[in-house]
Amino acid sequence: MADVQRLFSDFIAADRSGGDPEPLGYLERVKGTDRAELEALIDAYLARAPRRAFDEATFAASPSRTLRDELMHSLTGLAGAWPTLLPQLRHRAELKRSEVVERLAAELDAHGQEQKVGSYYHAMEQGLLAAAGVSDRVLKALSAILGESAEALRRAGRALAGGRSAGGPEAVFARVAQPDDQFAAEELAQGSPTMTEAGERDFIDELFTGGSDSGS
């Protein structure tokens, strides 16, 4: 049976030398209380460990890059934490964005308007749509699809104080300037605008930009 203290010291040495050791490789060498002790020690060590030095190449290939981009949308956008939360919930539910859009359109009785619903949903994920303008009905529909309560979704839209989500004239209505490639291509093929221009607002515009009570 390997010695817990020696394994723990080996783990620390490997970590400090940049070896990037995996704890499970060490844990599988001990059993019972020894394993529990080693796990507790490694966990406590990692909880105390300082930030790693930045490495551009590793960062570019790491999931932390995607997360940083989503967090930037949250920190600088109109929709609070939606740019990080909505993709997370989608991944957890194992749904593609197109599947969420399809179900959202169905929940909102927006048959044949999937493109427009998709553009608005895309804007929510990108932080381009003011959270305050999105109706409770949309959030309830998303709640049923993504498995998070409508109240939690509303709170997330207000998170990150200091971002533009806090309010201001531009937070009342935001037009999607750059839909993602998928929707842009589909719109081009169908010749439809991303959203209805001012003066031609329909019930979908109301649901996504008219405020919490709209469309209820």
């Binding site: 930045f54 590793t58 932390s64």
Partner: peptide, 10 residues
């Protein structure tokens, strides 16, 4: 933000 997120991710 990149330095913060990358630094703690692993």
């Amino acid at each position: 933000l990149a330095i913060l997120v990358f630094g703690h991710w692993r």
